[in-house]
Amino acid sequence: AVSSLLTPFFLGAAAGGVASGRVTADAQPATHAWAHPTPVLFGLLAVAVTALLGAVFLAADARRFDAPDLDGYFRRRALAALGFVSALALTTLAVTHEDAQHVWHGLTHGAGLAFVVVAALSTLATAWLLIRPSGAWSRVTAVGVVASAVIAWGMAQRPYLVPASLTVAEAAGAHTTLRWLGLVTLVAVALITPAVVLLYWLDTHGELEGLTDADLRSSASDEG
């Protein structure tokens, strides 16, 4: 339980340190880069997001296994986590105005703002679906909240990898390396994605349920 809290927190804090522009390519290790509002809020937001996704997916599984008591329990947890995510997101947006001005400008203009709006709409859709016991699409909208927020952050930072000090182009590897990396990535996606989608479909449709004692006995008798 402790590791499940610490891992997303420090992952978010690392992202927040980069977004604030304090973590640069030539910066020396120091607490100065992390002991600021943006890294801390990014860390708390990462914890709230993981709690949201976990509760939403567990509620969906509870419905699939016809456990209405667990469905209600996890939907309440998901709604509470969604409230924390919304509050932390608004607070983070306000804090970046002073602590990470480049990111704040990107989140309130252009493509970054568009994905912020998508994240807000996905949040409302998730809340509406979680209130309904049959909200089967809540997993999709919850993932949409997180994906839109991450993409909004990426759009807000462009063209920088580290705001105001290191662009993506400056940090990129050699063109030959990038071409081969892109090719290998495409091949991996083409080979792995269909298998993962099939596995997920089989699991969510109950095709991968464990065998019972009766099933095992039946298989043994058939083989005999």
Rank of each mutant, 00 (worst) to 15 (best):
Gly72His: 11
Leu53Pro: 02
Phe65Met: 10
Leu79Pro: 01
His105Leu: 11
Val85Gln: 06
Ser86Leu: 12
Ala125Pro: 02
Ala120Leu: 12
Gly106Asn: 04
Leu124Ala: 11
Gly72Glu: 14
Ala51Gly: 09
Ala119Thr: 03
Asp71Cys: 13
Leu52Tyr: 04
Ala100Cys: 10
Leu113Gly: 10
Val56Phe: 00
His109Gln: 10
Ala114Arg: 09
Gln101Pro: 05
Ala100Glu: 06
Asp99His: 13
Ala94Glu: 11
Ala119Val: 02
Ala48Leu: 02
Thr50His: 08
Ala120Ile: 09
Arg132Met: 07
Ala111Asp: 02
Val85Asn: 10
Phe65Asn: 06
Ser122Lys: 06
Arg64Asn: 11
Asp66Phe: 09
Ala114Ile: 09
Trp128Cys: 06
Leu124Asp: 00
Leu52Cys: 03
Leu82Trp: 01
Trp104Val: 01
Thr91Asn: 06
Gln101Gly: 07
Glu98Trp: 14
His102Thr: 12
Gly83Cys: 01
Ala62Pro: 02
Phe65Tyr: 11
Ala51Glu: 03
Gly72Leu: 13
Ala81Val: 04
Ala87Cys: 02
Arg64Gln: 09
Ala60Val: 07
Val49Ala: 13
Leu121Gln: 04
Phe65Gly: 04
Thr123His: 01
Leu82Arg: 01
Phe115Thr: 00
Thr123Gln: 04
Thr50Lys: 07
Phe84Gln: 14
Ala89Asn: 11
Leu82Phe: 03
Tyr73Ala: 15
Arg76Glu: 14
Thr108Cys: 05
Ala114Asp: 09
Ala59Leu: 09
Leu53Lys: 04
Ala62Lys: 02
Ala55Tyr: 00
His97Gln: 14
Val118Trp: 10
Ala59Cys: 09
Ala127Trp: 13
Ser122Phe: 13
Val56Tyr: 02
Gly112Gln: 05
Thr91Leu: 15
Ala94Ile: 13
Pro68Ile: 13
Val47Gly: 06
Gln101Asp: 12
Ile131Arg: 15
Phe84Gly: 13
Leu107Asn: 05
Ala87Pro: 03
Gly106Lys: 04
Val47Phe: 03
Arg75Cys: 05
Ser122Pro: 05
His105Asn: 09
Pro133Arg: 14
Leu93Gln: 12
Val116Met: 15
Leu90Ser: 06
Ile131Tyr: 15
Ala81Glu: 02
Leu53Met: 12
Val118Leu: 14
Phe84Glu: 13
Ala87Asp: 06
Ala51Trp: 01
